[in-house]
Amino acid sequence: MTKSFVEKHAPALLVIAILLLWELICRGFKVDPFVLPMPSAIWDSLLEFKKPIFDHALQTFWTTMVGFAVAVLVGIILGCLLGSSALVYRACYPLLVGFNSIPKAAFVPILVVWFGIGTTPAIVTAFLISFFPIVVNVATGLATLEPELEDVLRALGASRVEILRKVGLPRSMPFFFASLKVAITLAFVGTVVSEISASNAGIGYLMMSASSSLKTPLMFAGVIVISIMAMAMYEVFAWIEMRMTGWAHRGQQATA
């Protein structure tokens, strides 16, 4: 009975244990709250600034979602192009890999020149950082289509578009949804990075201003709020993934 309780709530128990340890260390060693505030102090500051925190979180949230939505759209279109033509795949892939290896934070100053300070560069950064995994996964899902299956369909006279619609896309759905989980967390990174250096709204901006006014607990509150948002969205997409592509997780002999 007790064992199953521990097993069931192990993640929550671990978090509580870490918070307690953190609190004890800070109190025991009298750590300067300016360097590392206690969890209770972070909580207080969360409550104290809940209105501005909420407003900035909302700003960050919808900025991220817009950037992410564009990334999904572009990701699907590019992924389809790459996945259905070996030539396009060969031509574009090195370019994409090269582009992906650029730290997206390096784009922010350029984006500021183009779009000015504010929401637009944050949306674009969120998009730039999160579309790559979607492209690669959709393309991989399409490109790994069994040749026999393609032959079956081609022998029926199916056009390329039909093969894509009937087999390619449904088959790459598990890849696609798996990539959404990765992409949504990356999109939050993009938004915050941009907000930190080029915005006057959002959690990133809130943390910058807290930093310049030496409010360390508020900075930690910001970190916690952003991580809760990212985790929640991750869970949402994990849930959608299970709902949409349960067939891919049930049996491995499906294609045996």
Partner: peptide, 9 residues
């Protein structure tokens, strides 16, 4: 074919 290649969904 030798592999049934059914669509799992």
């Amino acid at each position: 074919f030798q592999a049934p290649n059914l669509l799992p969904w």
